[in-house]
């Protein structure tokens, strides 16, 4: 009765995007939290863009970027033999862009919360910047990592507009939960729409509930 295809695909997408963004977002957030460069507001604005832009704008640009005659699209097709649009990796890439602020912003504020003095003290004891990060900042930012990861995961879970525009609705590859729900509503198949929506609703609530419970048990105690 329940379609497991879209459910599994959505979980896979969210997981892959969260892991990728941990690798991309951590250095970016670390740099943003330390830098005094004039570029900082520029990069911060760029990172926050997916928060304010409608998914249609991102979807439209990605459709143009992904096409097999564009530099990125043709590189990808030569490299993998598969077009970037309508592929699983295509929607991964789209989601990485879309969810970037949900990873970077909580991490950045977590790193900034650790406090400049501690970092300075460690540096004066000849800890290398990498040491400072791994031994001091990262452990103190555990909560930030958790919040950022869960928010990224949950946000990707609910992604719809961009995937609708660049995904091509292919079962098993790009037909995620939100798209499947949209299709069921369109065809007036409310039973299936209810089942999938219900799963998404309960799951999303549980995820957020877990974050807030965890946050209460582990209050910020750095500084």
């Amino acid at each position: 009765m329940i379609e497991f295809g879209p459910l599994i695909l959505t979980l896979k997408l969210s997981l892959v995007v969260t892991v990728l963004l941990l690798f991309i977002g951590t250095p970016l957030a670390w740099w943003l939290s330390c830098t005094r460069s004039k570029l900082k507001p520029f990069i911060e604005a760029l990172t926050a863009l997916p928060l304010v832009l409608p998914p249609t704008v991102l979807g439209f640009y990605l459709l143009i970027l992904f096409n097999p005659t564009s530099p990125i699209g043709s590189f990808w097709i030569n490299f993998t033999g598969e077009s970037l649009s309508f592929s699983f990796f295509g929607i991964v890439l789209a989601s990485v862009i879309y969810s970037l602020p949900f990873m970077v912003q909580p991490l950045q504020s977590a790193f900034e919360n650790v406090g400049f003095e501690i970092r300075e003290a460690a540096a004066s004891l000849r800890a290398s910047p990498l040491d400072v990060f791994i031994k001091i900042v990262a452990p103190l930012s555990k909560r930030g990592f958790l919040t950022a990861s869960i928010l990224t995961f949950a946000h990707t879970l609910g992604e719809f507009g961009i995937i609708l525009m660049v995904g091509g609705n292919i079962p098993g590859r790009t037909k995620v939960m939100s798209i499947a729900i949209y299709e069921h509503v369109e065809t007036l198949d409310y039973t299936q729409a209810h089942i999938l929506s219900g799963i998404l609703l309960v799951f999303s609530f549980c995820v957020l509930f877990l974050i807030y419970t965890f946050n209460r048990r582990h209050p910020l105690n750095v500084g």
Binding site: L63, G73, F86, G168
Partner: peptide, 19 residues
Amino acid sequence: KIVFGQNVGQAYGFVKTGN
């Protein structure tokens, strides 16, 4: 090789944008 648009407009757009 089949990709789906939500309507003919989107299917048309996929060709128009070279995808």
